[in-house]
Every structure is written in structure tokens, then in C-alpha cells.
Amino acid sequence: MHSLLESLIEIIRRTSAEIPDDVHQAILKSLENEKKGTIAASALNIIERNIELAKRKSQPICQDTGSVLFYVDAPIGLDQVAFEETAREAVKQATKKGYLRQNSVDSLTGKNDGTNCGPGAPTLHFHQHRGSELRVRLVLKGGGCENVGAQYSLPDEGLGANRDLDGCRRVILDAVLQAQGKGCGPGILGVCIGGDRATGFEWSKTQFLRRLEDVNPVPELAALEQEIVKTANDLGIGPMGFGGSTTLLGCKICAVNRVPASYFVSVSYMCWAYRRQGATLDADGRIAGWLY
């Protein structure tokens, strides 16, 4: 695995500087839908220029290079300790190169040592599988959109949300309303129905690994995803909350089991600057192919 460090730095660079194609297509489509001459269209034009510029200059799409979240699907036998050490080194080097901002702060002292490494940073999720392929996916999630995420405990009387899919729909739409443009919309929602307070949010974020154009294999969830996007776009919040017809570019929902006493709906919001990339690595740790 002597090429692992180099490959992880490249995955970080590409994630930070290049928007994945599925998201880019959705942004281009939304640009067609906004009325010309409006401030919403103007914002989307700037977004489009920004995407092109970041890619060409190989520099961060957004200065908030976010929480660094690795998702590693590994064959049995991968040395996870060594992988994590290499990932931390890759994060440090990517920060020096300016692919990542010095973005990790000690929560007690407020000190920022400039390395992006510390307790809980970066975050690595390992999943073993019985195949031979090593897949590394990375999500860089900015703080603005993270701050507008929300977790609801159903029933929620104020919102008229019972423990059913209509209740889920109500709270998810409430999250969109409350977020307005603050999460840098048009946004994408990752939602988890069920789980506990920690795993609910964790699962909601794994929805960001899905392609925007995919179809949920669970028919009820597929229908809910579509309905949320349609209704959200009828609210007129628009890009940046300027008003307009594009509030959401997508919504991805999963359901996991819960205990009988709890019914959480966890909503994570991803900004338009949707930084998600991944690659399969060969036995030497070289990039064998890109996943998005």
C-alpha cells in the first residue's frame, strides 16, 4: 500500500475542487428553471462560474472545507490502524497544500493547530466486506449546512406529525422551511427515519453517498423523496433563500429500525457545494477508478 498516502491526498484534492457530475447536472438544470434576470438566476450563474473556476484552478469550491468524513469499504484483513494513520497524514498534507482550510478547532481552548487532526477529526467509518475491493469515499461537509440539520422526535404535536410517513413528511418540510437559504441552497437532504439520536444522523449522512439520479428501492421512500423535492420547490425559498423555484436539488431517505419508544427523523442538509468523491484502490493503494 505504498501509494495510499498519495492516493488519499488526490481524493481529498478532487473532492474539494470538483463537484461530482450528478450534482453538476442538477445545478445546470435548476439554472434553466429559474427566471432570467432574477437575483436567484444571478446566484446560480455565480455558482456555475465557481464550479468551473474551482476545477480549473484545482482549489476549494468553498472555503469551508468542512468536516472530513471518510467511508471505507474494506476487504477483511485491511490494517485499519495503518489506514487511519495514513489518512491523518493525508489530511495534514492536503491542508498544507491548501486543498483543505485549517478547519479543526479544539472545542475547549478554541485553538486551531492548523493540521485538521485532533480528537474526532478526521472521521473514518470502516465497513468490512467479503470481496477484494478497497473503496474509499469522502464527504467534506461544511458547517453552514451542518448547522441547519435537524432531528425530530415523533410525535411532534406542534407540527401535527404522528408516527407515520405523513408525520415524516411534515417534519422534513419543516426542516426545509427553517433552513431557508442558510445552508447554501439549493440543497440536498439526507434523511434517516428511525435509529437512535447518534445513528439517526450517521445514517442520514450516508444518504449523501447515493447518486442524485438513483431511485430508492423502497417504493414508499422513493415516493416520499420525490414529494419532498416537489413540495420544497413550491415554497419559493430559492437559491440562497433569495426566492425562486429551486429550493432542493434532491432528497434521499433511508429507514432503519428503532426501539418502540423512539421515533426519530434525522435530517442532514447538504449545500449546493456538494463535495463527495471516491475511488477504488488497487493492492498498492493506487487509484484504480473513480466512483462518481
Binding site: 446566484a43 455565480i46 455558482i47 462560474r49 465557481n50 473556476l53 474551482a54 484552478k57 482549489q59 476549494p60 469550491i61 468553498c62 472555503q63 461544511g142 453552514g144 437559504g181 447554501c184 440562497m240 433569495f242 449545500c271 449546493w272 457545494a273
Partner: peptide
């Protein structure tokens, strides 16, 4: 004055 969130490159220019 609302700048376009996330447009770090256009604004850095």
C-alpha cells in the same frame, strides 16, 4: 449584503 454562499473561487478572484 448577501454574497453567494459557497462561491469561494469567484469571490477569491
Amino acid at each position: 449584503l448577501h454574497a453567494v454562499g459557497g462561491a469561494a473561487q469567484v469571490l477569491a478572484e
